[in-house]
Amino acid sequence: MYSEKVMDHFINPRNVGEISEPDGVGEVGNARCGDIMKVFLRIEDNVIVDVKFKTFGCAAAIATSSMATELIKGKSVDEALAVTNKSVTEALDGLPPVKLHCSVLAEEAIQKAIEDFKEKQETKVGA
């Protein structure tokens, strides 16, 4: 049911882990629905120099988390914001229809982490 790419990213997920004192962090989903993703960003000069994630969920949730982090690594914050669930799904050669909602998780987690980064920036500027 899953593409080879999905299975690859499920078996060998890229960028699993945490970043201590991240520049941005975002967590979305809830255990009730069966998937949660937490993204940690290290951002220097507006470029995502490192990204890590932790995900509770099915193979599709883990694979989309992995692929999404790959897509934004080394990219500018604006480029990362342009990554959508559609681009993640395409990069994985598609997902079964019932699993499409899983890919929204990664998009939302990244957006939330970048929002967090921007808020932190503002606080810094304000101080």
Binding site: I11, G34, F56, G57, C58, V98
Partner: peptide
Amino acid sequence: IEGESMLLSLDLKGIAASSGSACTSGSL
């Protein structure tokens, strides 16, 4: 952890099982 991830991981090791997780039923 979530059931479908366990099922697929077990299947890769040749073990066939089942789960009551939402992700295996197609519902939420």
